[in-house]
Write a protein that binds this DNA or RNA. Structure first.
Length: 731
DNA sequence: ACGCTTACTTAGAATCTCTGGA
DNA sequence: TCCAGAGATTCTAAGTAAGCGT
């Protein structure tokens, strides 16, 4: 032990060589590109235009600053800071009574959820089968004869204003009634709740057989399918607009599963998917989706009211996903070997219910029973079932702004802040480990170096052939990195090219310190492209080590920490007090973008991107023209004023000046917007905003830079945020 | 230490809703 | 009033990581 040669160590597994769209063969492409199923190869090759370049520059800076961040952290500087430590006020649990005059009146545990007063607007479309992807013809919500439920009844100005006021009031009320769980004492370890009651999940409606006017054709002939086969045919027809249905694996998997649902007779007849014509079914489905859009809010709201809430320790909480996932065809991401397989309909007999013993047990749909009813308060889920494609367990859980989720979220950022206090030691430690005699230690150190510097994911091992071939840090293979002694004027450059979570490509060329570089060279020795780079390391070992350095520390925490610290630094670096609002917003988005790039959060460019860019450019041009016209007019007016000298022309000059100024401002705003949009073409900001950026950083920044500009409603939002933040024991 | 199960977070796409400007 | 675009929400796949039994 400790003196093995890296190369001779056993190979953990030899992955099947899946053809990867963005495998090494495309490495030359040279930019981060989504391996989205949407993108064609040719697109990938040409899609690396300037905008992305800009972003790339940003990336380098980010990484650098993220590293230099480490130097800063020690100093515990400004208090508006990510690290700001003001240990939470001792959280007391106010016994079991509703906190504040909350809307609990209706919330008596035994009372049915009939929260008319609770106007949570929910946009959900309900039994939503995977429907309408493309059917997106900007549906102008015309009221149709059969659905006179006017989406847009003519409203007078007063009515609109009234509705708006009502909404604001409702929001404020809601805020007042918010369960201030953070002011309560926490439960003992492992206890997630003391009382939980809910109505069980919402099941999607049963399958409605096709009307007699809609047909399926095989080989040009009408074929009436059995209900089971017909339903699955509809699943395929629904997706016809999607590229999925053109993929070989998808079609094969679908066809195989479809045939299982057929009668012997059907199976005998239908042997070739290419001879199937789903056109009429597809058209019918599109029409149905259209019709469904006209359903009133009230109809949707009814379902939300009935199934969307639960009672958790005497507080009404919103459930995140209260609907059982409808049956359909499995859409894996990337080159998923199981794409197209039939995702079966879930019955109550498949569902486990979790709630309090003493609660009103949810009633299963008529004629059905639950698989099991249990009362486990060490978990947060309300219901679960096992999905048939991969055998994973699916859960019904609370909404993100519930206590259970909120508390976890808060803890996550607290752990990240704790890391800040000891990250220097940890870094020193792994730098020392790079020189260790033990291979395991060195592998661990290099992996940690990547995780820390590049915010890579841990990279658990995956079952081969069951999912798309994706990797994280610990599961990197030899084929995923290329070492360059020299590259683009840098020494010791590691070129990464692999598919990460969701089959998003990670492509990056990173100069590393020579100790890391030399270790990598040794790790690569005597290995095949398909062998594991860190063949002696697992995420479990890595995390075990990390938790010994700091309680609660895992690989994932580095991502949170580095994301948040990067935001903080970028905000500091990029924003100026003298900027106007648009510019400040651009700075914020750029800081956010730096984080998204660090975390490799990419998106497919919006379908309408090019068009909307052209539109915006058109507006900018028009505005420019307008501006020059306004300037000319101003000049004229000035001349006139000089000539005449009386006050009337002076007034005109004043007005013209104002016009010029307005024009300039609008132009600037649009230009900033264009820049922002362009830079954001392939970057997804949402994920980092939602999961990685400690909200306290944003709040601090907003309060310093934007407060003077805020509209009252916005500053109200901010105040709310402050309440939350301060209640979390930070400023 | 390992393999498996379970519970929970993180992820991008799809869809829905709101808003401001033409 | 209409529409484009932004932003929010929903959906569910795909990760991380803990715990347990062997």
């Amino acid at each position: 032990m400790g003196r093995e040669k890296e190369g001779e160590a056993k190979t953990k597994h030899k992955p099947t060589k899946l053809k990867r769209l963005n495998g090494c063969e495309s490495a030359g492409a040279g930019e981060n590109v989504k391996n989205s199923t949407k993108q064609t190869k040719s697109k990938e090759k040409t899609d690396h235009g300037k905008p992305h370049k800009k972003v790339k520059t940003l990336k380098t800076e980010t990484l650098e600053s993220s590293t230099s961040a480490s130097e800063l952290v020690k100093e515990e500087p400004q208090e508006d800071d990510f690290t700001t430590k003001k240990k939470g006020v001792k959280r007391k649990r106010i016994k079991d009574e509703p906190v504040e005059a909350s809307s609990q009146s209706s919330a008596s545990p035994s009372s049915k959820k009939r929260n008319k007063e609770n106007g949570h607007r929910e946009g959900s479309d309900e039994e939503s089968q995977k429907k309408s992807k493309k059917g997106k013809e900007k549906t102008v919500k015309k009221e149709e004869g059969e659905h006179p439920v006017s989406k847009k009844p003519k409203m007078t100005k007063e009515e609109i204003e009234e509705a708006r006021q009502l909404k604001i009031k409702k929001k404020e009320e809601e805020e007042q009634n918010r369960w201030r769980w953070w002011e309560e004492e926490k439960y003992e370890d492992g206890v997630k709740w003391k009382f939980l009651e809910h109505n069980g999940p919402y099941f999607p409606p049963e399958y409605q057989p096709l009307p007699d006017t809609v047909h399926f054709y095989y080989n040009g002939e009408k074929v009436k399918l059995s209900p089971a086969a017909e339903e699955v045919a509809l699943f395929f027809a629904q997706m016809l607009d999607h590229e999925y249905t053109t993929k070989k694996v998808f079609r094969e998997n679908f066809f195989e599963d479809w045939r299982k649902e057929m009668t012997d007779e059907e199976r005998c007849l239908i042997q070739d998917l290419d001879k199937c014509d789903f056109g009429e079914i597809h058209a019918m489905h599109k029409a149905k989706v259209e019709a469904r859009k006209n359903r009133t809010k009230e109809e949707k709201q009814k379902i939300v009211d009935e199934y969307g809430y639960c009672m958790l320790d005497h507080h009404k909480e919103r459930i995140g996903n209260f609907k059982i996932e409808p049956p359909g065809l499995f859409r894996g991401r990337g080159e998923h070997p199981k794409q197209g397989m039939l995702k079966k309909r879930i019955q109550p007999e498949d569902v486990i219910i979790n709630c309090s013993k003493e609660s009103r047990i949810p009633v299963p749909p008529a004629g059905h029973c639950w698989k099991e009813v249990r009362h486990d308060n060490s978990v947060t889920w309300l219901a679960s079932w096992t999905e048939n494609i991969q055998g994973y367990i699916k859960y019904i859980m609370l909404n993100a702004n519930s206590k259970l989720k909120g508390e976890k979220d808060w803890e996550k950022y607290e752990v990240a802040r704790k890391l800040k206090t000891c990250v220097d030691n940890i870094r020193n430690q792994y730098h020392l480990d790079l020189k260790s005699k033990e291979v395991v230690r060195r592998q661990r150190a290099v992996a940690l170096y990547f995780i820390d510097k590049l915010a890579l994911r841990a990279g658990n091992e995956k079952e081969e052939g069951e999912t798309a071939d994706t990797v994280g840090c610990c599961s990197l293979r030899v084929e995923h990195i290329t070492l360059h002694e020299q590259l683009d004027g840098n020494e010791c450059v590691v070129e990464f090219d692999f598919l990460g979570k969701d089959s998003i490509r990670y492509y990056n060329k990173v100069p590393v310190i020579s100790k890391v570089f030399n270790n990598l060279k040794r790790f690569l020795k005597n290995k095949q492209p398909g062998d594991d780079l860190f063949n002696r390391l697992s995420t479990a070992m890595l995390n075990k080590h990390l938790s010994s350095l700091m309680p609660g520390l895992t690989a994932k925490v580095f991502r949170t920490y580095n994301a948040s610290i990067t935001l903080q630094q970028q905000l500091k670096e990029l924003s100026n007090k003298s900027d106007n609002v648009a510019e400040k917003l651009l700075s914020y988005n750029r800081a956010n973008r730096a984080v998204a790039i660090l975390c490799n959060h990419q998106r497919a460019p919006p379908k309408t991107f090019d068009q909307s860019m052209t539109n915006l450019q058109g507006k900018i041009d028009a505005r420019k023209e307008q501006l020059s016209l306004a300037k000319t007019e101003l000049k004229e007016a000035k001349k006139e004023a000089k000539k005449k000298g009386n006050s009337d022309p002076k007034l005109v000059v004043k007005r013209k000046k104002a016009a010029v100024k307005r024009c300039e401002e609008q132009l600037l705003k649009m230009e900033v917007q264009a820049t922002d949009r362009e830079e954001n073409k392939q970057i997804a900001l949402g994920t980092s905003k939602l999961n990685y950026l400690d909200p306290r950083i944003s709040v601090a920044w907003f309060s310093i830079l934007l407060m003077p500009f805020l509209s009252s409603s916005f500053s109200y939002c901010l105040r709310r945020c402050f309440t939350l933040v301060s209640s979390c024991g930070s400023n």
